[in-house]
């Protein structure tokens, strides 16, 4: 991902800042600039998620793209945050066999990827067992 493309949303990625529609009360992460339910009637404001939730479903990536190859096997999951929205993120666990649907997780700060040895390093939010 290019530097400006990552930088544009880095505080959202670092701190789980999504959005909330004040018209209908729905939370969004990833952030949305338009509420799909209220559209032009919606009033979108920033919202910092607590960072806790549970695993809805998950997989273990064994074959990855080149950039993530060294990290295999790693767990990716769809996580439902306590505010009700869902997102996709890696889950760090010492034993990939211990992950289960419904497992409580919390956010943590980790390196996501790096553009080789000389390019930019991308940081962001992953999840660990609560």
């Amino acid at each position: 991902m290019s530097v400006p493309r990552f930088w544009r949303k880095q505080t959202n990625r670092y701190n789980l800042i999504g959005t909330k529609c004040e018209t209908c009360g729905t939370y969004y992460f990833p952030p949305r600039s338009l509420c799909p339910k209220c559209r032009r009637e919606g009033k979108i404001v920033d919202y910092k998620f607590k960072g806790t939730g549970k695993i809805v479903t998950f997989s273990v990536v064994r074959t990855a793209s080149d950039k993530f190859d060294l990290q295999t096997p790693f767990v990716v999951a769809i996580i439902e945050l306590d505010e009700g929205t869902r997102l996709t993120a890696p889950v760090i666990c010492s034993d990939i066999n211990e992950v289960y649907i419904g497992m409580r997780v919390k956010s943590t700060f980790r390196k996501i990827s790096a553009d080789g040895d000389s390019g930019i390093i991308v940081y962001g939010t992953k999840f660990i067992r609560e």
């Binding site: 990290q71 760090i92 700060f109 980790r110 390196k111 996501i112 940081y123």
Partner: peptide, 16 residues
């Protein structure tokens, strides 16, 4: 450190 940890992620998690 884990594969995705460095002195920066350690600093952030300590600060948090």
């Amino acid at each position: 450190p884990d594969m995705d940890e460095d002195s920066l992620t350690i600093a952030v998690n300590a600060a948090r």
